[in-house]
Design a protein around this nucleic acid. Structure first.
Length: 491
RNA sequence: GCGGGUGUAGCUCAGUGGUAGAGCGUCACGUUGCCAACGUGAAUGUCGUCGGUUCAAGUCCGAUCACCCGCUCCA
């Protein structure tokens, strides 16, 4: 890949071509927020649709879901986010470096408290942390830390217009909980049987301490998540199924193999509820480590459904205070296996709480990766050309239609073709300027095919179809265009 | 949040206290018959924003916003 080795280049490309803009730019921008332009909106839609098609439409064992972003506060109490979704961070007074408290090491080399679990905001912050023996990883100073600060990672908002009866809610920090919360609904209404999955695409919000690298880590972002429910004991096999399935999804959409890899999570890196977790990483041309996560696939066992069973048992306490920070989640019942979120297998007459494999992908990240991966520069007759080699499925525009020149009836024929293709493909019509320039413009947008009406078209009803990558041209009968493009693109 | 850097036309950038510029791109007209052609013409700037110093600020000072690199991480 040529030239796109700095994030700045990518940002400039995205803006220039209308893929991604800074949010609220005319007002100076808003940190960490971005808008998708004309081509970007198409690309993103195509990424979403490709995901949905692969995991819902083409599979018999997954159904879709589209939850609201606002949910009952108890959802986040039960999931653990309300108490624990915060990082406790301290600042070294000497060098001003900010470090997570649980990442600090002791002077004598004792191990860090490597719990990946987030800390409880209210209790832990007040607790006098003994940082006197901790070493700053940056400058090496010992015990020079300020008081630990907590960062609330969930966005708060108010529901209800009257001041008296407003309720504080959170914008969801992940789409997954909406799936767990609807587990029963889906089972009761769609005749699914374990093993099965529920898929959802949607926005999530996290008040990240630091955002990063363009649209790579933003506070508002879009997720594509599957919760795949399976019988305990079969989880290992499904975990491996999903690893392969999801990895291949990226490959099948044209992502270069050398830019993709798995990264296995170490045992001490795993959240307490996860039995195993692997990241699908992409080799972005920016950042320190290059390799950055696109998707995480985790074996969450039965943690979430059991937590929500506890949540359901806690509702009396909720009605008393209507404040999740003031209540404690009730313990599990003795026979939680038979709880409201358990599953009864009619064939084996067994009841159990299913295990869950969770492939959780970032749509925005994927878009960025596909964009970066598709970018290329080559030469035509000694002239440089920049081109986006998108897989046709992802290409914002599938075909552009041109009259070779703007006269002799060519525009009329081209327009007619345009009107015929429009209902089937996202297309673009252009009659302005030199033909070479029009081809190059489409190359820059990643359009796989350009259809040109020339003098011969009037004679024999054929047009040329020019291919983006090979630059070859083929004469095709106008009547066969639709099928030709369909075959070529596999749409 | 801390340290370092950046911010001038859609993009890339020049402009070192004295009338805001170039290249590319965009648009119009003409020409043109298959890979960034040519000619003529045109549009476009709160010089990131707010304030200060000065007769005069894109330029000096302060604040602020946004982005990039690092610390931080995990979709």
């Amino acid at each position: 890949m040529a030239k796109l080795n700095k994030l700045d280049d990518i940002v400039a490309l995205c803006k220039r071509r209308g893929f991604i803009y800074q949010s609220s730019e005319i007002y100076g921008g808003l940190a960490s927020c971005y808008d998708y332009g004309p081509l970007g909106a198409e690309l993103k839609r195509n990424v979403r649709n490709a995901w949905w098609k692969a995991v819902v439409q083409m599979r018999d064992d997954i159904v879709g879901l589209d939850c609201s972003i606002l949910m009952h506060p108890m959802v986040w109490k039960a999931s653990g986010h309300a108490d624990k979704f915060a990082d406790l961070v301290t600042v070294c007074k000497k060098c001003n470096t900010r470090t997570r408290v649980d990442h600090l090491k002791e002077k004598d080399g004792n191990h860090t408290d490597e719990h990946t679990e987030h800390v409880n905001i209210d209790t832990e912050q007040d607790k006098a942390f003994d940082l006197s023996k901790k070493v700053c990883p940056s400058c090496g100073a010992v015990g020079q830390f300020g008081n630990p600060m907590a960062f609330k990672l969930m966005f708060e908002t108010q529901m209800g217009a009257n001041v008296d009866d407003t309720m504080t809610l959170w914008l969801r920090p992940e789409t997954a909980q909406g799936i767990f919360v609807n587990f029963r609904n889906v089972m009761d209404s769609s005749r699914v049987k374990v093993p099965f999955g529920i898929a959802q695409i949607g926005k999530s919000f996290r008040n990240e301490v630091t955002t990063k690298a363009f649209i790579f880590r933003t506070r508002e972002f879009e997720q594509a998540e599957i919760e795949f429910f399976c019988k305990p004991g079969t989880d290992e096999q499904w975990y491996h199924h999903w690893r392969e399935f999801r990895f291949n999804w990226y490959l099948n959409l044209g992502m270069k193999k050398e830019n993709l890899r798995f990264r296995e999570h170490e045992k001490d890196e795993l959240a307490h509820y996860a039995k195993a977790c692997v990241d699908v990483e992409y080799k972005f041309p920016f950042g320190s480590g290059d390799w950055q996560e696109l998707e995480g696939i985790a074996n969450r066992q039965d943690f979430d459904l059991r937590q929500h069973q506890r949540g359901m048992r806690t509702m009396n306490a909720w009605y008393e205070t209507r404040d999740v920070t003031k209540l404690q989640l009730k313990d599990e019942s003795e026979d939680w296996v038979k709880g409201p979120l358990s599953y009864f297998d009619d064939e084996t007459k067994e009841r159990y709480v299913p295990y869950v494999i969770e492939p959780s992908a970032g749509i925005d990240r994927s878009c960025l990766a596909f964009l970066v991966d598709a970018y290329d520069e080559d030469e035509i007759n000694g002239e440089p050309r920049s081109v986006l080699r998108f897989h046709p499925t992802l290409a914002p525009v599938k075909a552009a239609i041109f009259p070779l020149v703007k006269k002799d009836g060519m525009p009329e024929i081209a327009h007619k073709i345009y009107d015929e293709l429009k209902p089937c493909f996202s297309t673009f019509y252009d009659e302005k300027g030199a033909i070479g320039r029009r081809y190059r413009r489409q190359d820059e947008a990643g359009t796989p095919y350009c259809i040109t009406v020339d003098g011969q078209s009037k004679e024999d009803n054929t047009v040329t179809v020019r291919e983006r990558d090979s630059l070859t041209q083929e004469r095709i009968n106008i009547a066969q265009l639709k099928n030709f493009l369909r075959d070529k693109m596999g749409l």
